[in-house]
Nucleic acid binder design. Structure first.
Lengths: 192, 192
DNA sequence: CCAAGAATACGCTACGTTGCGTCTCGTTGA
DNA sequence: TCAACGAGACGCAACGTAGCGTATTCTTGG
C-alpha cells in the first residue's frame, strides 16, 4: 500500500536514501510555495537534482509522493498532536486553537486547501492527512471520555470527529474569517 | 463575477444559446463520468460539438464552466433544498438524509469528492457548491430558530453550519460507511 | 581469497502524447 | 454588416516510457 518504502534486500545497487530524502524535501518545498496543482514530477526531479525516472521507479503518482512527504512530517509541523491534560474540553480547545492559528498565518490556508484537494484525489493522502491532524488520538480520547462519563455517554464518536475536522476543513476551504471564540464555541457546541 | 452570462447587445451575430447549453450539458456529463481532474476544455468542446475558442470566449477557466454548470442545476439534483415543516430538527434530519442517501448511491460519492476538489481550487465553485447544498437556507433557519428559542439562543450559527456541511464533506472524502442513524445523531449532537 | 559476472539503481537524454491558451481563417446568422 | 461561430494550427509545458552508460552491490567459481 504505502509506496516508496524500503525494498527487500536483493542483489544490485541499493536504493539511494539520499535521493529519496532529496525528493521528499523538494516535494515539501515546492508544495508549500506553489500548491498541489502546480506541483509537477519534473519540477520535483529538477529541484531534487534527480532523474524523473527515479521518481517513477518508486512512486506511481504525484499523490503517492505527497502522501509519503506527509508521513515523513515534512509538510505539516508536528504540533497538531492532541494535548493530554486530563481535561478533554480544554485539550480540544487548545488543539483547535493551534489548528486555527496555523490556518491564520499567511500562506498556510492555501497549503491546507491544497492538501484537501490532494486528499480528494488520493485516499492515501486523505488517511495520512487525518493522521497528521491527530484524528486517531481524537477518537481514543473522545471514546474514553464518553466511557468515563466526562461527556455525554451517548456521544456519537464518529460523527463528532467528522464534524470537528470537517469544520476545520471548511474554514480552510472557504477562507472564512477566524473569530477569536471559534475554538471555544465549537467545543461547547459539540461536547454539549 | 459570474462569467458566461448575457452579453451587451451590439451589432453582429448574437451569442448562441444552443452552444452555451451544449457546453454546460457536456460539462455535466463529462464531470459525472470522468471527474473534475480528468475534465478538459478540449474534451468539453468535442463532446459539445463546439470550437475551443467558443468556450474561451465566454469563460476564463475550467472552474468557471463548472461553477456555471452547477448554478444551472445540471450537476446536482435540486432536491437538496432544506424542507420547511416548522420543525428545524426534523427538517435538518431530512436534509441530511437526502444528502447521505445521495452519497450512498453508487457513483455519487466520487462526484461530490470531485466537486470538493474543484471547490478547493476555485472559490467560485465553492460558493456555488454551498448554495447547491442549501447553505443559505441553513443559515436563515438556524438563526431564526435560535432567535425564536426553538434551539439554544447562544448557538454559534456559523460554526454549526460549518460542522454540518463539513461532516457531509468528510463522509464524501473518506468514503466512510453510512450508518443508518448518522443523520439523527448529527442533528442531536449539534442541536442538543 | 578475490576477480568475473549478474543484477539493479542512478543520471541523462530523447521520444510521442495530451492538454493548454492563443491565433488565424472562412462561414454564418441576427 | 460584423461579431459569433466551426475548424484547426501553433508553441508550450508536463506527462509517462524507453534506452544509454556508469556506479554499486551481491553471487559465484577458479
Amino acid at each position: 500500500m504505502t509506496e516508496g518504502t524500503a525494498a527487500p534486500r536483493r542483489r544490485g545497487a541499493a536504493r539511494s536514501e539520499s535521493a529519496r530524502r532529496a525528493i521528499l524535501a523538494a516535494t515539501a518545498s515546492l508544495f508549500a510555495t506553489r500548491g498541489y496543482d502546480h506541483l509537477t514530477i519534473e519540477g520535483i526531479a529538477a529541484e531534487a537534482g534527480v532523474a524523473k525516472q527515479t521518481i517513477y521507479r518508486w512512486w506511481s503518482s504525484k499523490g503517492s509522493v505527497v502522501a509519503e512527504t506527509l508521513i515523513e512530517g515534512e509538510l505539516l509541523p508536528g504540533r497538531f498532536a492532541l494535548p493530554d491534560t486530563g481535561n478533554l474540553r480544554a485539550d480540544l480547545t487548545a488543539w483547535l486553537e493551534s489548528l486555527f492559528g496555523f490556518l491564520g498565518e499567511p500562506g498556510n490556508a492555501p497549503l491546507i486547501t491544497s492538501l484537501v484537494s490532494a486528499a480528494a484525489g488520493n485516499p492515501d493522502v486523505g488517511a495520512r492527512l487525518d493522521d497528521s491532524l491527530g484524528a486517531s488520538e481524537l477518537t481514543i480520547r473522545i471514546r474514553d471520555a464518553a466511557a468515563a462519563g466526562e461527556i455525554w455517554a451517548d456521544t456519537p464518536v464518529q460523527e463528532t470527529i467528522e464534524a470537528l475536522i470537517g469544520a476545520v476543513v471548511m474554514r480552510a476551504l472557504r477562507g472564512s474569517p477566524l473569530t477569536p471564540d471559534a475554538s471555544q464555541d465549537l467545543v461547547r457546541l459539540l461536547l454539549r
